[in-house]
């Protein structure tokens, strides 16, 4: 059952990323990406991380992608943008991407196989993660909140129309 779900989600993820690559319309690309992120959320759930699955869907597929779509709508480009015209760039990128793929696969295969120790585990409950966040990772958590505020203010300052513009 789980393996079926895995292949389903994996197919959705890879398929929608391919769709995103092929699509000429930015908005379509963004929507494809929402699907990809959502199926990744499903995969997170399969990995026994329900909280991360929810976070992935709410923040990534929800908030961040909405942001993208907003910007796409603000930058009105009319017709879509075709793919890269310089073929050698794509060829080089694909070539090196495949090498990288081979390298990583080789690296993972070469690594000692670790048995799935937690296969029987039901997964990590959000309670546990919440406890970790507010005990062991309290300071990183607080610092992250400062980072978000800084990013927020930074974005506002960047976008603000200056006088005389």
């Amino acid at each position: 059952m789980a393996i079926l779900l895995f292949f389903l989600f994996a197919a959705f993820a890879v398929g929608s990323v391919l769709g995103m690559i092929i699509s000429r319309n930015q908005a379509y690309s963004a929507l494809f990406l929402v699907v990809a992120f959502a199926s990744l959320g499903g995969l997170f759930g399969l990995l026994g991380a329900p909280f991360m699955a929810v976070v992935q869907i709410i923040i990534y597929a929800g908030a961040i992608m909405v942001l993208f779509i907003f910007v796409i709508m603000m930058i009105h480009l009319g017709e879509g943008i075709s793919a890269e015209k310089k073929k050698w760039t794509i060829a080089a990128a694909v070539f090196m991407g495949i090498i990288l793929l081979a390298e990583i696969v080789f690296a993972v295969k070469g690594a000692p196989a670790v048995p799935m120790a937690g296969q029987e585990m039901a997964g990590t409950s959000p309670t546990e993660i919440g406890r970790l966040l507010f005990t062991k990772y309290l300071y990183p958590f607080e610092i992250t909140s400062i980072l978000i505020i800084a990013a927020l203010v930074g974005a506002v300052v960047l976008i603000k129309k200056r006088e005389g513009e």
Partner: peptide
Amino acid sequence: LFVLGIIAFFFKRD
């Protein structure tokens, strides 16, 4: 997915 991301980066023009 990672390599697809790389290829997407080079494929796109905006």
